[in-house]
Design a protein around this nucleic acid. Structure first.
Lengths: 342, 342
DNA sequence: GTGAAAGCGCTAACAG
DNA sequence: CTGTTAGCGCTTTCAC
């Protein structure tokens, strides 16, 4: 407990001296490696306590080639920092990643890749050994990020299947299945005049949700559904819903490709005097925070983001342990959360 | 461009050899420090390119005592990881911090301090030199985190004034002023039967908003306002609003201490047949995402979280540059965002 | 079981 | 302007 002179932060050397042993021995007890006589061990522990010793991470990393840090790279379309972090998705992924990593004494460093420069910075960050590997969250199409990391031979895993094929491990949701869940629920309610608010046409997730919905509706005897596009924001959901209402004022069922757009749709539905779910049944996707904030609460397709994030962590850890691990993918099953809107 | 043998990642030494100069010279051109003959500089640059050299962060840190990383510690009440990250606040702070740091080639490592163990881990992370300092986001009362860091002599700054006095720099909002803005707006609209949904009684921010609101209403000739407590969640806002309505069914103005509670209040107001803002005017606090998702959109008190985060970054950078910088605080001014709910 | 010694890759005086 | 020389603090064979 006695503090050593406050001069300089104590090193292994100091502890060794205080305990009357060699640096190697101190290292062994600190890292619980090898075998050390119990008596000595005790003496060393006391010396550590007395000196207030704390291992130096940089020195350790220099020899171990491990930092215990991984880069969590959020890939935003060029420019928008605020946008990325405002997305409720971001929080869920982050939470999942942190929760998984912390149990392994690892930590994520947050990086935003929203420009060529930023992408390069993120890559260099890992290459310089600031992090052992990277978790890439790429939600927009044609993102050069995955390719960049793979080509550089940097250990990385991905959230969401890449738009262009890249040999990298990733997790994703079975978007078709999720959309099919929504379709089945709508059909079951007896909805026959169906519309959907789709996401960006170049985003694999949006594509899957749209095609999955159309196909499933077909199976349920509804060969045609009205389609309007949004960009996953509430405002775009409003616009799309207005379009849809114009196309067919008698609509009785709507599937939005994410919750935020569903929230927007809900607003214009109400403004147009439609009661939800009585006149029009509405289903969202994601089960994000906003879904529970609306009135009626949103029936929506749950995406196990936290689990998916943990799986990414596991994939990366495996890749770090054996760099030759071949790429793999894990596709998660969605679940329909029935609340009030459908 | 030619890749060196893929054996081992190239070091300064390799570059020096390839360029026919000493390590020191290479170091100088890499770090743009000192002066190097233009001819040599060019040769070195070519060698770097040829070898594919990337500086090793650990080695650098070992001598520089700087990592370029700061710990962004989110302090949650014990247990709830998901909760913390789901809060829209988290995203805004993170965005602000990332934006500020990245321009200085710095990066935040995310840590969750929701238990004694986790707090200790966060502290050790910085003490081991994994990070140069810490930004502490402490939103709950009696949080031991600030004290812990200060006592350990670790450079740290804080979001929100600590409940118990601790010598540490922090940013905060002028909560009283924000509440006064809301009060003035309500008074101006002619509201006379006023209520407020307050936050946790032990949280400085909540205390300030409540007392500020009460005092301001008094000045506007309304000596008494009904008070119900929530815990900053939408559900608690619902409960509180129900209580308030029971206390005084003729209410015509409500101030909620945050947007989430306002969202909850909005729901029960609607359920009880009150039209907002015509029957009851409602004002929230924070101007978070949900405020814009409701219908009517929430009139709310804007908190410049991104700026506040940047200021924390600046405070920490200053502290890192000169550890003797005395603690300081910067209190930001709120702004009333008038939308539709009041 | 324990110590001595050789680095890990880089920076920073200090000479030249 | 450039090279030489010490380390930064730790881990890890390899002897003893």
């Amino acid at each position: 407990m006695t503090q050593a002179a406050t001069r300089r932060t104590p090193t292994l050397e100091d502890v060794a001296e205080a305990a009357g042993v060699s640096r190697a021995t101190v290292s062994r007890v600190v890292n619980k490696k090898g075998t050390v006589d119990e008596g000595l061990r005790r003496r060393v522990l006391e010396a550590i306590d007395a000196t207030g010793y704390v291992p130096n991470a940089a020195a350790r990393t220099l020899v171990n080639r491990r930092t215990g840090t991984i880069a969590l790279v959020m890939s935003g379309s060029d420019g928008s920092a605020a946008q990325v972090f405002a997305d409720p998705f971001f929080g869920r992924i982050t939470g999942g990643v942190v929760t998984y990593l912390r149990e392994r004494a690892m930590h994520p460093t947050l990086m935003l890749a929203d420009s060529d420069q930023a992408r390069q910075d993120a890559l260099d960050f890992v290459r310089r050994g600031n992090a052992d590997g990277a978790i890439l969250v790429s939600t927009h199409a044609g993102d050069p990020l995955p390719r960049l990391f793979v080509d550089a031979g940097v250990p990385a895993v991905l959230f969401a299947r890449p738009a262009d094929p890249v040999p990298i491990s990733f997790v994703d949701l079975d978007h078709e299945a999720g959309a099919a869940l929504a379709a089945a629920h709508l059909a079951e309610r007896g909805c026959r005049r169906i519309a959907t608010i789709a996401g960006p046409a170049d985003l694999p997730a949006a594509i899957g949700r749209l095609s999955g919905f159309q196909r499933a509706m077909e199976r349920h005897g509804v060969p045609y559904v009205h389609v309007a596009r949004g960009n996953f924001t509430a405002d775009s959901g409003e616009r799309a819903m207005a379009e849809l209402l114009a196309m067919d004022p008698e609509l009785d069922g709507v599937f939005a490709a994410n919750d935020l757009m569903a929230v927007g749709a809900l607003r214009v539905l109400r403004d147009h005097g439609r009661s939800v779910p009585d006149d029009v049944a509405l289903i969202g996707f994601d089960d994000s925070e906003p879904a529970q904030l609306t009135r009626p609460r949103l029936t929506t397709v749950y995406q196990p983001v936290e689990q998916m994030s943990a799986e990414m962590g596991a994939m990366l850890v495996a890749l770090l342990a054996d760099p030759d691990t071949p790429p793999s993918s894990v596709i998660f099953d969605p679940r329909l959360i029935v609340r009030e809107s459908a």
